[in-house]
Design a protein around this nucleic acid. Structure first.
Lengths: 344, 344
DNA sequence: CGGCACCATGTTAGCGCTAAAATACTATTT
DNA sequence: AAATAGTATTTTAGCGCTAACATGGTGCCG
């Protein structure tokens, strides 16, 4: 049980540095640096000797030193509500697929749907001096807004567009339009007594539901008693519970819009337990179209959002800006698709 | 559309630094540094003046400079297969809840269940010179093993224990014991023709299945034809498909063990579509006991693993080692619990 | 064959911070 | 009042790397 450490928090010594590699390969430190970062700018033979020395010494570059000297961190900070939300996995993959090949690292953090957590996370991230940043949503604390403005780095706000102007750039969809589309679909199908379930009521869920309700209101079918929301995190269990509560107050419902698919799964399970036939007795729809939504019985009608493309586009915009380009379109709406299935 | 950048990749100037704060508050840079990192070591009045100056100037510390000067990154690297796997969310929360209060940042990355990806990810992470590292699983490439040994930082290998000695420390459960426990449970319940479904066959899934099969073999009930595995990623859809394939070759099955809950969901859905009653005609069990497993119909029998505690314990061991402590117990088995429900 | 362009490489200086040593200042003791 | 111990603060020196400039060598033109 050795201590496996060489004096943390003291002046190092003993660690292999660029100069060690330089000495071993008989060139200057600067040349080794170039061999690593711009290999095309050094001769073939030097590159080989440097590579051999790196292997022989087990050299590991020090990013802190690189960032400090280069005044550039090669890092993109990504702020999302929660990695445990399957929705963001695809977004993250999209970002990753652009950032990694471009030599950028991703610094990722969760706000857990809290504005305070978002603020402190962004403050923390700014100490890394990221070269760019991707943040979920258009709403944020004023102090955070000011910090981001002061940081003066390219910023993309993702997931939604349209509610207000972004601080810098934005990519997403209109959640109120998506909610409205689902409402119109349900009206077309002839549903009259339509309920709404919401949890984890972040701004985007609120807008989905608002868009949905506005359309119902136009048709004269809105009813506050049929809307049940909670700030609790969305879970499958909660979906069942909320549906039970909603049916207690409104036994005559013929359709329910759930503001995300997890709630919808719970609602479907609850119907199964109560022997309520979906969609014949009660139609159910979700939002996000997760992987399992096509498999559940009955398969779930949902709104498919271009998650991967949101991430990819956001990262691409960042990369272009980091390359010095000036973008004419700073707001990109990628649209959505209503995926009609058996449940509604 | 301003460029929002002050010459990236050139010598900075213009950014607010410690010395700016020092000048404004009339003390030396070192005192400001202490006011930030060891506030109890500076006088009350100095601390206040420094805080005012920081606010006034909008000073943001530079972590790269801190890491370089302090020879310590205040960062823990965490290597997991996939954030999109719900299993790891709880582990991550456990790690976070220990690291954040202790002032450590988490650097998180996915291997996507590939040894090569793991190798390159760990190499990349080592350039950050993390103060400690948490890696999933006991198996890794030899080159990676050597790199980690050379890095000489505290390391915890999580999720499984028992198959081999850890490089440094480990926390987890025995997956073969858990598989065996499930097999014994099924035998007790009188099932005779038991099938096995596996996907995303990482080492831990393999061990679960091996443990399961070994017990069946002891009872003389093992049959290779009843085991169906694939390297494809686990999805709900895949669970249904695999069950369909398995039933085609073995129409007489009376129980199926799925190596994770997602597959089990898909299997249950498939049974619903085929009007196979679970568990009367076919019993189904999963592994991990995800949130939805208690809600699905019928509720899913599964193995509950102490995910949060694995993360928490791993991080605590790391913190203690970083504080210079020598741990006598470097391998911790946190055990599991068979959660019996309606599906088996 | 001198002059110029172009490339590969080297030199110098410094990024923003903190460890360690040095110094000033304040009790407390003798 | 001098010696001692302790605390608060400053000074010095670099952490490992790269931007910017300097240099030396090569080929190519008129």
């Amino acid at each position: 049980m050795t201590t496996r450490q060489s004096q943390p928090g003291s002046r190092s010594k003993g660690r292999v540095t660029l100069s060690d590699v330089a000495r071993m390969s008989g060139v200057s430190a600067m040349t080794v640096s170039r061999a690593l970062n711009e290999p095309q700018r050094v001769s073939e033979q030097v590159r080989e000797r440097v590579e051999q020395a790196i292997d022989a010494l087990g050299y590991i570059p020090n990013r802190a030193a690189r960032s400090l000297a280069g005044n550039r961190s090669h890092t993109i900070a990504v702020v999302i509500p929660s990695v445990s939300n399957a929705v963001f996995n695809n977004v993250i993959r999209g970002i990753y697929d652009v950032c990694a090949p471009a030599g950028y690292e991703m610094l990722m953090g969760n706000t857990y749907y809290s504005v305070q957590q978002e603020s402190s996370l962004i403050s923390k991230f700014l100490t890394h001096h990221p070269d760019g940043m991707i943040v979920t949503g258009l709403d944020m604390a004023d102090s955070t807004r000011r910090q981001l403005e002061a940081a003066a780095i390219p910023l993309v706000q993702i997931m939604e567009v349209g509610t207000s102007a972004p601080l810098d750039m934005s990519v997403g969809i209109s959640h109120s339009d998506a909610g409205a589309a689902m409402a119109r679909y349900m009206l077309e199908r002839g549903y009259k007594r339509i309920g709404v379930l919401g949890a984890q009521m972040d701004y985007r869920s609120q807008r989905r539901i608002q868009g949905f309700i506005d359309v119902l209101a136009e048709a004269g079918l809105a009813d506050d008693k049929r809307v049940l929301t909670t700030a609790e995190p969305s879970t499958v269990r909660l979906g069942g519970q909320l549906l039970a509560d909603l049916l207690l107050a409104n036994p005559d419902l013929d359709a329910v819009f759930c503001c995300n698919d997890d709630l919808a799964y719970g609602a479907i399970y609850e119907c199964q337990r109560r022997h309520i036939r979906v969609p014949q007795q009660l139609a159910i729809a979700g939002f996000n179209d997760l992987e399992g939504s096509a498999c559940i019985n009955p398969s779930l009608t949902s709104i498919q959002t271009p998650l991967y493309d949101i991430g990819k586009t956001a990262a691409q915009m960042l990369m272009r800006r980091l390359a010095g380009e000036v973008l004419q379109q700073s707001v990109v709406d990628l649209g959505f698709r209503l995926q009609a299935r058996d449940s509604a």
